[in-house]
Design a protein around this nucleic acid. Structure first.
Lengths: 132, 132
DNA sequence: TATTGTTATACTCTATAACTATA
DNA sequence: TATAGTTATAGAGTATAACAATA
């Protein structure tokens, strides 16, 4: 069950980065952009929670995305230890493409499953996220 | 939905390798041992399918596990291009511990969910695996 | 000719611990 | 003292292409 989860994650990530090949994004970069696609800026800590990636790993990923001008780190005036990671215009476009590819892959993979099955799936995945 | 899948995978892997800290296994090594835990030897190709890891990546993982005497590569007499990856006695013990930790983590995380929800979950994960 | 698995290379991800700045 | 985020280091995972051996 957990092993199937890993298998499915690997497979869908490979399929996704194949479809997004022209964007030259790694799996983690896709993950970050996919999460930021809603347009809401996040702190590193929050992004770490959302992606399941450690802050120390995120630093390098964000460095690369910032260097490619897809996102920016803006100082948070409320807490000056912290940044707000925000998409640039270019990043918004890339994130939009990522989001569309995710939606399309889901639509394709999940056609034929009932709403009820999908709701149950979401409940189980949510439960697995709470293992800590 | 796909993003939640990745998040859940990251989280459960981190929880697992935390619980298995004394075995000093990486997430991928845990994944390989968990799959081999049923005792059935597999070719690299088959293990690649089961784990969602590419053959080229698997080579290094198997090298390390073989060096630690947890598994062996036996020549396959039927197809001499291929190996049969089999657990050693020591590997069987480690794989048993991994398997037990997975079962326990699932039991803990999934308590309170109905059989029907779990069945739906399995159906969705199976569908996601078929994206290729 | 196609497939199995490995190697080579360069890059990305990860864990751990130590560190700076701010709270 | 605690938290946010980065850096440093060493090791592990990845993609890609090329390769040897076997089918």
């Amino acid at each position: 069950m957990l092993l199937a989860l890993q298998r499915a994650t690997h497979r869908t990530l490979q399929a996704l980065s194949g479809e997004l090949a022209e964007l030259k994004l790694s799996a983690s970069e896709i993950n970050v952009l996919g999460n930021l696609a809603d347009g809401r800026p996040r702190s590193v800590r929050e992004l770490s929670r959302d992606t399941g990636t450690r802050a120390t790993t995120l630093t390098g990923i964000l460095d690369r995305l910032e260097r490619r001008a897809l996102l920016s780190r803006e100082l948070d005036a409320q807490d000056r230890r912290s940044f707000r990671i925000a998409l640039t215009d270019q990043g918004r476009e890339a994130a939009g493409t990522v989001h569309a590819a995710i939606v399309e892959l889901e639509r394709h993979a999940l056609a034929g499953l009932s709403d009820q099955e999908l709701a149950s799936y979401r409940a189980v995945v949510a439960a697995l996220q709470e293992v800590f």
